[in-house]
Amino acid sequence: MGWEAPNWRIGDYPAQYNQKVHGPYDPARFYGKPDTPLGQVKLGELSSWLARRNFHPRAMVQCGSRAMWRWRQKYQLPIRGNACWIYQAMAGISITFYILNYKKFWDHANYKYH
């Protein structure tokens, strides 16, 4: 379980980002040392893969932010876009709030035993 501060202050650029090498800053990009993508990790190596992750709160927020920017660049920001990002956002928000309010919906269950 890593615990390194990814930058010296909230809102600052990642510590690994070097403009001279990496060029213009891309918020969707991870500038640290690349590891195996999660989709290619074998189940046996999953624990060691998780041990190598950075669980600093700011690093986790950065991870979410990168994912958000990747999604935006993929579906929302293209020049000739379409409505799919709206539908995706609707679906994502519905699922999120369903999970958040899940306890309330138990009362609407029709069967006690399955």
Binding site: P24, D26, A28, R29, Q73, K74, Y75, Q76, L77, P78, I79, R80, G81, N82, A83, C84, W85, Y87, Q88, M90, A91
Partner: peptide, 14 residues
């Protein structure tokens, strides 16, 4: 980084 012309393909709308 280059701005894409078209978004990635989707099925069933999303």
């Amino acid at each position: 980084p280059v701005v894409k012309m078209h978004p990635d393909p989707v099925r069933l709308g999303f």
